[in-house]
Design a protein around this nucleic acid. Sequence first.
DNA 1: GTCTATAGGCAGATAGAC
DNA 2: GTCTATCTGCCTATAGAC
Lengths: 198, 198
Amino acid sequence: MATMTRVAPDTQTRILDIAERLVQKRGFNGFSYADIAVELKITTASLHYHFAGKAELGRALIARYSARFFEALAAIEARLPDADARLEAYANLYAAVLREKRLCLCGMLAAEYDTLPKAMRESVLRFFDENERWLARVLEAGRKAGSLDFGGPPEEAARAIVCGLEGAMLVARPYRDIVRFQSAAQQLIASFTAKAGP
Amino acid sequence: MATMTRVAPDTQTRILDIAERLVQKRGFNGFSYADIAVELKITTASLHYHFAGKAELGRALIARYSARFFEALAAIEARLPDADARLEAYANLYAAVLREKRLCLCGMLAAEYDTLPKAMRESVLRFFDENERWLARVLEAGRKAGSLDFGGPPEEAARAIVCGLEGAMLVARPYRDIVRFQSAAQQLIASFTAKAGP
DNA sequence: GTCTATAGGCAGATAGAC
DNA sequence: GTCTATCTGCCTATAGAC
């Protein structure tokens, strides 16, 4: 069992925390080592001790972000048995990010994809892939159980959900309007939910 | 009546053409005056004669892109009387952009919103606003005519469509997979289309 | 691990000649 | 309109001391 002790985060972790926020808010091309250094009150030279270059830092960011996200998905499965509740919880993961006025890390990197170091590109796509696989399983199970209703293969439905939620974040964020996101997300999920009735 | 004569584009237009492509592919923070200068075979100093700074260039890009987009919307209305056909044509505008491996200009700028010169921000939001207004009118008319079917106010449905299409471009582009976009767009539109039936 | 110092490059921008 | 020349600033990155 994990202990409850919270130790102060080490330098590597703090670098990742700051860099993650900067990428999600300003993009990978919108921040510099200097931004991190100022906030952490160390020099840019010291940053290079922890991460050889921006590309390596970027790779580490995606790896940590993905790992945490997939842990959150596992937690949803452990906590909620129903497919429709799982879908709602999934959308709430996105909402929580938006509430901090951030974009999904990989959504932001998708926009900047053409300018990313090669080492980062593949792992951005794998993030989406794994999201879609998880959603497809949820959707398939929900359809079998009768709580969800949609036509076509669950993989395609899963892709539409990822697209819809990423897009809702992208558009809602500059308006600073969480309601805009919630509305789009709710309509999206509703279009996969079985209608009660005759 | 407009003449059929195509004159060679002037320098301003060529600058805008190149810059537009660069922003849609690489982002506003992902290209420089030097990139344009090389391609146009003039110096960066000359660029400053046509556009005082990058912010002014950015403003001009949004203005031209928006104007053309709204012209395209007017053309759809002139050509297609049915709401469901108009929706499909609307999605095809996005698909045409994606086919050139570009993101929507304002979708890209939405991702970079926090780093944009102030002069550019407002016009990005106005682009989305006007898209939503147009869609809301189409949706409302379609519901009255019976070709479309959805619950809630047309303004909210319109927002969900903009979000869904922007997101589908964002995610599909790094995969270089137009089918991924088409699938998401089709599901989205289908969720607003009246079902034929008993 | 963190620092100072510095390299080398690229960014956006301007002055002034033609 | 376009050029050369130049500026200032920021960027990533490295060498080497502590």
